[in-house]
Design a binder for these strands. Sequence first.
DNA 1: AGGCATAATGCGTTAAGCGTCATACAGTAC
DNA 2: GTACTGTATGACGCTTAACGCATTATGCCT
Lengths: 115, 115
Amino acid sequence: MIAPASASLPSPQLLVELSGFFRLLSEPTRLQLLCQLKHGGAMDVASLIEATGFSQSHISRQLGQLQRAGLVSCERDGTRQIYAVADPLVDDLCNLVQMRLKQRLEQQLRQLQGV
Amino acid sequence: MIAPASASLPSPQLLVELSGFFRLLSEPTRLQLLCQLKHGGAMDVASLIEATGFSQSHISRQLGQLQRAGLVSCERDGTRQIYAVADPLVDDLCNLVQMRLKQRLEQQLRQLQGV
DNA sequence: AGGCATAATGCGTTAAGCGTCATACAGTAC
DNA sequence: GTACTGTATGACGCTTAACGCATTATGCCT
């Protein structure tokens, strides 16, 4: 028999940490950086600036947040900093949510069609 | 013609939708409501107010956001609104992130202990 | 050393969202 | 109908974080 996962309620601290993690993914800029790094492999900051169109300071700050959370790693190459995705979890989460969004839209479409 | 090289990159619209979903989970209050509903099953607003300690208006607003996103459903019972979790995805996401947080802390612990 | 590139950090402005108070709305009982 | 309960919403202050500009730090040259 499978336990009904009678998970006790999460502690306030865990709630804060979970929400803090999700908050990292709640900005399109940061998500875009993560997707760009996953797509293009390791990239330096200048490439990410060009790919996103944001200012240098903004990109640097967002990368800093992602790095402190362990989602990206960076190493020097001369004067450049090369960033790369350090955790595949984000990609899994995005895929799950994307499937969910798609299913929800399909359901709404069926309702409009009166099925 | 649109370059096919960026085919695997998510569109700006998708980025906004993904980040919007994660934003829902970026507030401890909403996360707490979802966990409470998962733990206690269907609950009315008054019970959720008592469980969280927030004001009635605040809880009502957060429930409204969760409902519009399809994460919770509600039905009337007299004057009361009974809310319930409508999508198991949030629970899966939280479990994934929680495992990740745990692994990261264990790793940091090992580093402090000198491997 | 100085000069040049790349990236990080103070600082200010601005927008978005939380959270509460007061009010309006929906439903029931009388 | 009025009175009462339970919930949603408008208005508002406040905190936080995005975003850019200017500056500073860091590392390669010659």
